[in-house]
Each structure stands twice: as C-alpha cells, then as structure tokens.
C-alpha cells in the first residue's frame, strides 16, 4: 500500500521548482521594464551625442536654412511657445468648467450620460482625425487659415479630455463635508465652487494640464494635416511692432501668422535624404525631448507631492 503522504524529497523538489519559476518570471519582468528605461536613455543619449555639434546658442537664434550647418530652430521654438499659449488659454478654462459642471452640477440623466460617453470616446480618437476636423472647420469653414490660432485650438480640443478627466478626479477627491460647510453658511453652488472646490482642486488640475500640454507639444500629425508650412524664416509680428512704412502690428496679429513648431521641424529634417540634416534633427529632437520630459517630470513630482501633503 503506497504511503498517503508523498515523500519529502519530491515535495522539496516541487517547491524549489516553483520558486525557481517565480524568480525567472521576476527577472523577465525586470528586464522588460529595463527595456523601457533603456529606450528612453538610448533616445536622449543618441540625440544628444549626434546633435552635440549643433547644440550651441546659434542653433536657438537662427532660422531654418537650406544649408544644414547654418539652420536653427528660432521660428520653431517661438512657434511652439505661442501655439502652447493659445492651447492652454483655450483648454484650461473649457476643461475646468466642463469638469466642474459634470461633478458638481450635472443631474444623472441621458444628457450627462451622452457627454460622459462622448468624452471617453474622444480621448481614444486618433490625433490625425483632429487634424482633419480642424482642416474642415477652422481652416476652411471659419476661414482662420493655417495660423497659430488654428493650431492652438486644434491642440486644445485634442487635450480637452485629459483636462476634463483630471479636473473631475481632483474635484471628486474633495470630501463632501467641505461643500456642506460652505452651503451651511449660505453660499450658493457657484460660490462653493469658486471659493472652495476649484481652489482645492487646482493642484490636480494643474497636473492634468501639464500632462496635456506635454502631449500637445509633441503632436505632429494634426498640425501637418492642417497644412502648416515647414519652411518659415520669419517670426510672428510682435504686438505694436513696426511692419513697413508707418504701420504697426495689432495686438493680436500674431494669432493669424503662419508658423512652424518643434516637432514639424524635427520631421522635416528627419525626412530629408541629406545626412547632414540628421544632425539637425537630432539636436532639435533633443531639445523637444528635454521640453517634454521636464514637463512630465514636473507633473509626476506634483502628483507625488500632492499625495504626501493632502490628507483630508
């Protein structure tokens, strides 16, 4: 008659095998994570090394040029800055208002349901589709042309879901007691929102806005689709600067100016057959990566700090 218990040796071997598999799996997991980290380092390192020759002050103060060694990113970084300004000015108020509405005002009905489903679907629409939307609506139907305003509004629509979702999460994290206390002393709903909900939600909103802008700054496809030029050797007019004989630029003339942005400049230089431009592409790509990674870094740090500080 066989013993009811398996012998100890076999059990030990079984346990050892199980533990070995556990360890092997952990190793694979760490290796895969390391691949992700490696890709980031490879990218930044390769661009820094390849582009080192061009990373000098002249690169930032020169316009794009047909000669690789003299080309710079002046119009590109100024364009990126201005487009981001328009994007932030449009997306932040709209996104925060929509988020506050959905959390604090909206009744549970079909209309709210539609808006919510719609926002989660919009977040998954490919960015190039936003480019087509903007080509049809902003460029032709509204006649805004291929301007900074068009690009800024396009990217604002693109990051709107990110801003709305982060606003909602931040608002939802505020305990009910704050609202009750405010309303108990006679504040209206809007007064509660303006003096309590929105200020308290601000750090969370800010994190979402930075992540959204970091995404917008690197978006290339929608801006190309709009038809932005790639060779721009001038800056948008400064407000009240002299343009021609006795003429002064208006305060908002720069909004309608043609432009180029950093990712388009990188794309332009990457897709040229002449290898001399690869150096420029690397240098411009490095600058773009520094912008994006530092914005994401700030957002991650903000979130980390928030988690440490806020205890309701």
């Amino acid at each position: 008659m066989p013993s009811p218990l398996p012998d100890a040796g076999r059990v030990r071997a079984l346990i050892a095998r199980g533990k070995l598999k556990d360890t092997l799996f952990q190793a694979v997991g760490i290796v895969f994570l390391a691949v992700g980290l490696l890709v980031i380092f490879l990218l930044v390192g390769d661009m820094a090394i390849r582009g080192a020759a061009r990373l000098n002050p002249d690169f930032f103060t020169h316009f794009a040029s047909r000669r690789a060694a003299q080309a710079g990113i002046l119009s590109a970084w100024v364009g990126t800055l201005l487009v981001m300004l328009v994007t932030a000015l449009a997306a932040v108020p709209l996104g925060v208002a929509a988020g506050v509405y959905l959390e604090e005002y909206a009744r549970r009905n079909w209309m709210t349901e539609i808006i919510e489903i719609n926002i989660s679907n919009l977040a998954a629409v490919p960015s190039i589709i936003y480019g087509l939307l903007s080509l049809g609506v902003f460029v032709y139907a509204l006649g805004l042309g291929q301007s900074i305003l068009t690009a800024g509004l396009t990217l604002a629509l693109l990051i709107l879901p990110i801003v709305i979702v982060s606003t909602r999460e931040a608002v939802r994290a505020i305990p009910e007691s704050i609202r009750e206390a405010s309303m108990a002393v006679g504040a209206t709903r809007w007064q509660t929102c303006r003096h309590h909900i929105i200020p308290y939600a601000m750090p969370g909103v800010l994190t979402g806005v930075i992540i959204g802008l970091a995404r917008a700054i690197g978006e290339t496809a929608p801006i190309i689709t709009v038809g932005a030029l790639t060779f721009i050797a001038f800056l948008p007019p400064m407000p009240f600067a002299e343009i021609g004989a006795g003429d002064r630029a208006g305060l908002f003339d720069w909004l309608m100016s043609p432009f180029t942005v950093m990712p388009i400049q990188v794309f332009n230089w990457t897709s040229r057959p002449d290898p001399a431009f690869e150096v420029n592409a690397a240098a411009a790509g490095f600058v773009l990566m520094v912008m994006v990674l530092s914005m994401n870094g700030v957002a991650i740090w903000l979130r980390y700090k928030m988690r440490k500080n806020i205890k309701w």
């Binding site: 990218l43 290339t220 790509g285």
Partner: peptide, 10 residues
C-alpha cells in the same frame, strides 16, 4: 509621453 515624431526618428 515621448513625442511620436521622436519615436519615428528612433
């Protein structure tokens, strides 16, 4: 969060 154009270059 890396821009896709940079991935394209890569």
């Amino acid at each position: 969060g890396i821009p896709t154009i940079v991935f394209g270059y890569f």
